[in-house]
Design a protein around this nucleic acid. Structure first.
Length: 416
RNA sequence: GUGGCUAUAGUGUAGCGGCAGCACAAGAGAUUGUGGUUCUCUUAGUACGGGUUCAACUCCCGUUAGCCACCCCA
């Protein structure tokens, strides 16, 4: 038996129906982004590995074991977009051209995880970044924008979770505190958390294990680890969101897994997704630009997972209907048929004919299957009289027209 | 990355250690230039590679892919 190649693990094909839905979602999202004045940038799929080590974090799973490397080079397939946008921003010294920028991007991202529903090795993000302001009004805009996009594309049920991690100083202090206060109880934490305590103590906070949760609650954490400024800002943001009518859940134990996040973090989830329930997430990354060698400029962004968005959408029967199908009574007339197609396509009408030598009956069947609104029938009789037979498929009526009236008559039917 | 489950025409599904069925879809046709309903016919399958056995789609191992939970994240 001949070998049939299959796609690479975790990388799926989009069939015509999915592609149509994909295009529709992207288009709707882009319209919202445009209304919010975000500018699209299209960036390469390959980046220097070090960019992600420095931004996402050396000890994160993404960097430690999920990146696809180009053999023999320090180049990887991008696992996410934020670091890349900042790379672009700094490379072009955009802070010198204006003190505030809004960008968005869409495209494939790559992470070598074990695939599951809602978790692919090649998946698609649509992400937005706003660079140059630390205002909580901007935080609110970001959240409103993410929700608005999801509304527009038809994700009805979703939950917004929000938290603040505090500024860099807060994060360091709090990590230290957790390390110290939990070290005596280390043996009671799950295996994962014992490791986390050394490497990334904040992650212990959102562990799902009952035992770890108990220990975290026992610490009786207030928000004292967050400095006054950050607390005020966060409070203001929550009030503002309330005023804007945004429903949210304050999730004090939510910690995002990418090192660059600071202050406000949020996540939007759906209960239709099973284990991989986050359809979008984002937050501030006020230190990233400085950390990547640029000036001290605050920024915030989010990313939505397109495949996960699709999973939440009820499967719609999306079909592209054909305006006109051209049927001929013999193969010899195909040349004339093709001329007609050319004429119709100039008018922007979608049309097609049969290349498989089907009988007229067969052609009618396939016209019907393609959802054709109109069938143009071309036979010897029509050729002799310089006419065409025009059939309205919905009404099941047909009439003979003069060849030169073709587009006129078709438009009459379509616009009726 | 860890543990587990699954794999049968294009799709959805039966079945059995001894001839692989069904439905839908697809193609052809039903007095010859016309679609949808109906009827007839046709095409098409045990994911891949090994092993056990007289005999494997069935049992075992491996590979690949998908799924579930964990992990991670969008």
């Amino acid at each position: 038996m001949k070998k049939i190649y299959s796609s690479i693990r975790g990388m799926s094909d989009f069939d015509p129906t999915k592609s149509l839905a994909f295009g529709e979602v992207i288009e709707k999202a882009k319209n919202v982004l445009k209304v919010f004045n975000y500018k699209e940038i299209i960036l390469p799929i390959l980046e220097e590995k070090d960019l992600f080590i420095k931004s996402v974090g050396e000890t994160t799973d993404i960097v430690e074991r999920q990146m696809f490397k180009i053999e023999g080079k320090d180049i990887v397939l991008r696992p996410e977009g934020t670091a890349q946008v900042i790379r672009y921003y700094l490379q072009n010294s955009l802070h010198k051209s204006s003190n505030f920028h809004k960008f968005f991007y869409t495209g494939p991202m790559f992470r070598g995880e074990r695939p599951q529903k809602g978790r692919l090795r090649q998946f698609h993000h649509i992400g937005a970044e706003a660079i140059g302001s630390n205002s909580y009004y901007l935080d609110a805009e970001m959240i409103v924008l993410a929700l608005k996009i999801l509304d527009e594309v038809g994700v009805s049920k979703k939950e917004l979770k929000i938290n603040t991690l505090g500024c860099d100083g807060d994060k360091i202090r709090f990590s230290q505190y957790l390390k110290e206060s939990l070290s005596s109880k280390k043996s009671r934490l799950c295996d994962d958390c014992q490791k986390r305590l050394d490497r990334n103590p904040l992650r212990v906070l959102d562990c799902k294990s009952q035992q770890c949760r108990k220990e975290v609650i026992a610490l009786n954490l207030e928000k004292e680890h967050i400095c006054g400024d950050c607390q005020d800002k966060f409070q203001n943001l929550l009030v503002l969101l309330g005023d804007l009518g945004i429903k949210f859940t304050y999730s004090p134990y939510m910690v995002r897994g990418l090192d660059y996040y600071t202050d406000t973090v949020f996540e939007i989830s759906s209960d239709k997704l099973g284990s991989q329930d986050a359809i979008g997430a984002g937050g501030r990354y006020n230190n990233l630009i400085k950390y990547l060698g640029g000036p001290d400029i605050p920024a915030i962004g989010f990313a939505l997972g397109l495949e996960r968005i699709f999973l939440t959408l009820a499967e719609k029967k999306l079909e592209e209907k054909l305006d006109v199908f051209v049927a001929t009574t013999s193969q010899e007339l195909l040349g004339l048929g093709i001329n007609i197609l050319g004429q119709l396509r100039e008018e922007g009408l979608s049309c097609d004919l049969d290349y498989c030598a089907k009988s007229l009956k067969g052609q009618m069947r396939s016209a019907q299957k393609k959802g054709s609104r109109i069938v143009v029938i071309l036979g010897e009789e029509e050729v002799a009289n310089n006419t065409l037979l025009l059939k309205d498929m919905d009404k099941s009526i047909q009439k003979t027209i003069k060849k030169e009236d073709l587009t006129l008559e078709i438009n009459k039917i379509i616009k009726a």
